[in-house]
Each structure stands twice: as structure tokens, then as C-alpha cells.
């Protein structure tokens, strides 16, 4: 099959970006949220998405986490079609659950409202998926989970119920839970915006450690411009379902070119 001329675009290899949105359209009814969006995130790159409320930042992350489906276009991960799979005659058809399940392991997500499982203690929140999904030995999973809880500064809370933790602590457990699956790509959706101000710093410190101590690909939506400046390689400004402007944080925050970006930054900074 070396000469297979399948129209399936595969660009595997080291050169392939971690994530590529190819002319992605997302509509809810007649509300077009993403309008033929092209987007690339390199391997190990840290990208921050900024933009006004309702501009589709969360939608991008949810499409990648397979919590939503694209209306048109294709999402690629590591050079392979992700939202789609080769169907009859090599044509791309929308991915089925099996295709998605085999691939979504590479991606992890931390949610704005933590979404810890209240029916499990803190340690079990971090070990259940590795045990059941990755088939990891329970002792090994617990050992690793303790390491991760230590990383997020919660080694002493492993037997607590999530509901007994502060918001900041819950979010740090959620970060440990996501990391326990060893994702290549981590999605962070306004992970500090549901927290009391005094708890924000603790969570951001943990994320800074992760950003500086690993080579994970990060795609985050945040209103914490200081954090975005610290960790991102690139900042993307969104509006109207498209990328308005993109560049290194110094430039986007320091001398934005686009009027829309200046306006937005003026309002949030």
C-alpha cells in the first residue's frame, strides 16, 4: 500500500503540529461560533487564547476534548485526523466513538469548575482513570498519584473528600488528575476564574511549575495576563470566530497591532 493515493492527509512525523484546525466551522443552530478557523499548535508549544466572552475559546478546547463535534472542517492531532477518520474509499467521515476513544488519551483537560468526582476520595480521583483506562496496577497508580498530589501541594489531603477542600485545592487535585493520564496536550479552560482571589496564585504556581518542568503542549484560555506572559510562547486573540492577531506575549500585550486586541486588553488589564 505504499503507493496508496488515499486523499487522507497524513503528515505524521516530527514535523506534524500537535494540533491543527483545518477550516473548522462550529455552529449552534444559526449561531456560527467558529468560522472557517485555521489554527496550529506545535509540539510542546504553550499557547494562550484570549478574546471577549462568547468568542469561542471554550468551544475550541471542547472540540479538542471531543466534548463537541465540528460542523465542518477537520481537527488533526499529531498529524492524524482526529475529529474524522478514513471511511469508505479513504474519504474522511466523522469519527465514531472508537476512533475518538483511541486518540483522546493524548489530551487532558482541566475545567473551570474542577468537576472532581464527589463519590471518590482525593486519591481515587487521581487513580481511577489510570487504573481503569490505562490498566495501570493499583499500587503503582497510587504511588504516582501521591507524587502528583505532592507536586500540587496536597500530599496530606489524599484521604479527604473533594467536597471538603477549598476551590483552589480542588482545582489542584483536578490538575493532578489530568496529569495522571500523562497527556501530551493539556487544555486549561479559565481554571482560576471560579476561585476566590487569594486562591488563584497557588493554582497558577502549580501550572507554572508544570509548564517549566515538562514538555507538555499547553493550550489555555485565561484572563490572567501575568500568567499568560510567563508561560506562553504565543498568544492568540480571538474575535468573531476567527484569530484576529497572534504573536509572542510581549508583542501582543506590549504593542498589539489590531484595534480589537487593544480594545480588549484595555478592558481586561
Amino acid at each position: 500500500m505504499l503507493t496508496d493515493e488515499s486523499p487522507t492527509p497524513t503528515e505524521s512525523g516530527a514535523a506534524a503540529p500537535a494540533v491543527r484546525f483545518d477550516q473548522v466551522v462550529k455552529r449552534y443552530g444559526d449561531n456560527t461560533v467558529l468560522d472557517h478557523l485555521d489554527l496550529e499548535v506545535g509540539r510542546g508549544e504553550r499557547v494562550t487564547l484570549i478574546g471577549p466572552s462568547g468568542s469561542g475559546k471554550t468551544t475550541i478546547l471542547r472540540l479538542l476534548m471531543t466534548l463537541e463535534r465540528v460542523t465542518e472542517g477537520v481537527v488533526h492531532v499529531d498529524g492524524e485526523p482526529f475529529s474524522h477518520m478514513p471511511g469508505r474509499g479513504g474519504r474522511l467521515v466523522p469519527a465514531d466513538e472508537r476512533h475518538l476513544r483511541a486518540r483522546r488519551r493524548r489530551i487532558g483537560m482541566v475545567f473551570q469548575h474542577f468537576n472532581l468526582f464527589p463519590n471518590m476520595k482525593v486519591l481515587d480521583n487521581v487513580t481511577e482513570a489510570p487504573v481503569h483506562v490505562l490498566g495501570m496496577d493499583r499500587d503503582e497508580a497510587a504511588e504516582r498519584a501521591r507524587g502528583l498530589l505532592e507536586l500540587v501541594g496536597l500530599a496530606d489531603k489524599q484521604d479527604a473528600h473533594p467536597t471538603r477542600l477549598s476551590g483552589g485545592q480542588q482545582q489542584r487535585v483536578a490538575i493532578a488528575r489530568a496529569l495522571a493520564m500523562r497527556p501530551d496536550i493539556l487544555l486549561l479552560d479559565e481554571v482560576t476564574s471560579a476561585l476566590d482571589p487569594e486562591l488563584v496564585a497557588g493554582v497558577l504556581d502549580v501550572l507554572r511549575d508544570i509548564a517549566h518542568g515538562t514538555d507538555i503542549t499547553l493550550l489555555c484560555v485565561t484572563h490572567e495576563m501575568g500568567f499568560a506572559r510567563d508561560v506562553s510562547d504565543r498568544v492568540l486573540m480571538f474575535d468573531g470566530g476567527r484569530v484576529v492577531e497572534s504573536g509572542p506575549p510581549e508583542r501582543i500585550f506590549g504593542s498589539p497591532e489590531h484595534g480589537r486586541t487593544r480594545e480588549f486588553l484595555g478592558a481586561v488589564l
Binding site: 483537560m109 475545567f111 468537576n115
Partner: peptide, 25 residues
């Protein structure tokens, strides 16, 4: 809904989501 979504984000199968997350709650 966030509970199911968190379970999807951890790559659980539909049956694992039900058994480990949804049903116990």
C-alpha cells in the same frame, strides 16, 4: 453534565463513566 465531561476527558468508556462516576452519584 460536568461530571460526565470530566469522565470523557479522562478517556473513560461509556460503561466506565456510568459505573465509576454517574451511577454512584
Amino acid at each position: 453534565r460536568g461530571q460526565r465531561e470530566a469522565a470523557v476527558a479522562l478517556s473513560m468508556t461509556p460503561w466506565q463513566r456510568m459505573r465509576l462516576v454517574v451511577l454512584p452519584q
